[in-house]
Computed example of a mutant assay.
Amino acid sequence: MGKVLHGLDMFHLALLTKDDHEGVTYEPPEPVPGAVNVSVTPNTESNTFFADNGAYEIFNSLGDIDVNMEVADLPLEMQKKIYGHQEEEGVQFASIEDTVAELALSFRAKVSTGGYRYYWFLKGKAQLLPNEYQTDEGNVTPQTAKLTLKFMPLQYNKRWKSQAEDKPDLNLGEKWFKEVVYKGDVLTPTP
Rank of each mutant, 00 (worst) to 15 (best):
174 E>D: 11
142 P>A: 13
91 V>F: 11
139 N>A: 14
72 A>P: 05
62 L>T: 07
160 W>I: 04
91 V>R: 09
166 D>G: 01
141 T>V: 14
124 G>N: 00
158 K>C: 06
90 G>P: 00
117 R>F: 02
147 L>Q: 00
164 A>Y: 00
160 W>Y: 15
105 L>E: 04
73 D>M: 11
130 P>T: 03
85 H>C: 09
124 G>Y: 02
169 D>Q: 07
119 Y>C: 01
67 V>M: 04
179 E>C: 05
111 V>R: 15
118 Y>H: 05
116 Y>V: 04
149 L>A: 03
109 A>T: 14
125 K>H: 11
66 D>S: 13
73 D>N: 12
162 S>L: 03
79 Q>L: 03
84 G>F: 10
112 S>I: 00
126 A>Y: 03
169 D>W: 09
89 E>F: 11
165 E>S: 05
169 D>E: 14
154 L>N: 05
152 M>A: 12
153 P>C: 02
175 K>V: 04
113 T>M: 10
182 Y>H: 11
147 L>H: 03
164 A>E: 14
133 Y>D: 12
187 L>M: 08
142 P>H: 06
83 Y>Q: 02
146 K>G: 03
157 N>L: 03
74 L>E: 06
153 P>S: 04
122 L>K: 02
86 Q>A: 12
117 R>T: 05
137 E>V: 13
180 V>H: 00
87 E>A: 13
